[in-house]
């Protein structure tokens, strides 16, 4: 049972990783190219930020779970 959370976490990350290209494909690529491709840099920084934030949320959830379990024991 404990293996499940890890797998779902990687599934989430994989979906995120796959969905970014799909989302950005909706925008006009010509716009991105007309500005010296600066928006690819914005995209890269956004991915970095979003993944770190998602990871922080997952850590947050883990801490909450431990806190709840300790509370139940006492």
């Amino acid at each position: 049972m404990r293996i499940l959370p890890a797998i779902t976490r990687y599934i989430y990350l994989t979906i995120l990783f796959l969905s970014i290209p799909l989302l950005s494909r909706a925008e006009s690529t010509d716009f991105l190219r007309s500005t010296g491709k600066i928006y690819s840099v914005v995209g890269v920084i956004l991915i970095l930020f979003v993944v770190i934030v998602i990871y922080l949320f997952s850590l947050d959830r883990k801490v909450t779970r431990i806190e709840e379990q300790n509370f139940d024991n006492e």
Partner: peptide, 25 residues
């Protein structure tokens, strides 16, 4: 574990960079 997260970021950012220089994800 944190290294793995960084590796995922590395793959995803590389994919975006590839799209705008090599023309493919």
């Amino acid at each position: 574990e944190v290294g793995i997260i960084f590796g995922i970021v590395g793959l995803a950012t590389g994919s975006i960079w590839a799209k705008y220089t090599w023309g493919t994800w």
